[in-house]
């Protein structure tokens, strides 16, 4: 334990699940604050100002959503929501309320660390490099020139496709809800028109795939069923 690692506030009402996650995070060098309910979570949030919050939505006293809203009012601290399957609605609500990502129970540790890493990286620096380019796998998006390349092959995108790819790449590693994508690319009048998105995403995937003989570029946009999309490194296969 040389340099103190990032501080994580872990909010989970189930003793066993909380202890297991905390044990691993501590072993990985994080400083962990544990809360078993919403009140304790807010108290620890005030006193410790963690770098990251892992928040279970189903809390015994106050709703996890209320905790999230309270945190968002005060800071942009990354929040990853923990929820059980079958609660897609809650997940989308949480993401719309400002959560950075979510994990579905029972999640694996590899998944947990990949999400934690992604949100912490985003928190420390801008997504684009000094040259103003967003890069994931073979795909490069040059914000200054509004140009997209796969490897060295330039590809033609419509303005909508370009905006879509830009928003997704800017949040690389993190989920972006359909509503947020629609708002960012089409405007707020289109937030219920999910089918636009499916069509554009599949077109974008085809264009990216066509420019890359390995097919890797076509796989950087992953579906998050019921929630939205996430750009992933093509070699980082999602957890089964």
């Amino acid at each position: 334990m040389s340099a103190p690692g990032p501080a994580v506030l872990l909010v989970e009402d189930d003793d066993a699940a909380r202890a297991a996650v905390a044990t691993n995070l501590v072993a990985r060098g994080y400083r962990v604050f544990q809360a078993i309910d919403g009140r304790e979570a807010l108290r620890l949030w005030e006193s410790s100002r963690p770098d990251l919050v892992l928040l279970d939505l189903g809390l015994p006293d106050i709703d996890g959503m209320a905790v999230l809203v309270r945190i968002r009012r005060e800071a942009t601290t990354p929040v990853i929501v923990l929820s059980a399957r079958g609660q897609e609605k809650d997940r989308v609500d949480a993401l719309d309320a400002g959560a950075d990502d979510y994990l579905t129970k029972p999640y694996g540790l590899a998944e947990l660390h990949s999400r934690v890493g992604a949100v912490l990286r985003r928190a420390v620096g801008p997504a684009a490099d000094q040259a103003g380019a967003l890069r994931v796998g073979p795909v490069t998006l040059d914000i200054v020139r509004r140009a997209v390349r796969v490897g060295d092959v330039p590809i033609e995108l419509t303005p909508r496709e370009y905006e879509l790819l830009k928003v997704l790449l800017a949040h690389a590693g993190r989920v972006v809800t359909s509503g947020r994508l629609l708002r960012a690319v089409w405007g707020s009048a289109y937030t219920e028109e999910g089918h636009y998105l499916h069509v554009y995403v599949s077109r974008l995937r085809r264009k990216l795939a066509a420019a890359d003989p390995t097919g890797a570029a076509g796989r950087i946009i992953a579906n998050e069923p019921g929630v939205g999309y996430r750009v992933v490194e093509p070699d980082a296969a999602p957890e089964p």
Binding site: D14, A19, A20, N24, A84, G108
Partner: peptide, 28 residues
């Protein structure tokens, strides 16, 4: 289904994380 989904997954989540911890290559 909702109940089973929520309540069977909670112990399962703890088991999965605890087992993952034992197998974590980055942790001694």
């Amino acid at each position: 289904l909702d109940s089973v989904s929520h309540d069977l997954r909670t112990p399962l989540a703890a088991i999965r994380v605890a087992a993952g911890h034992l197998a974590d290559p980055q942790v001694d």
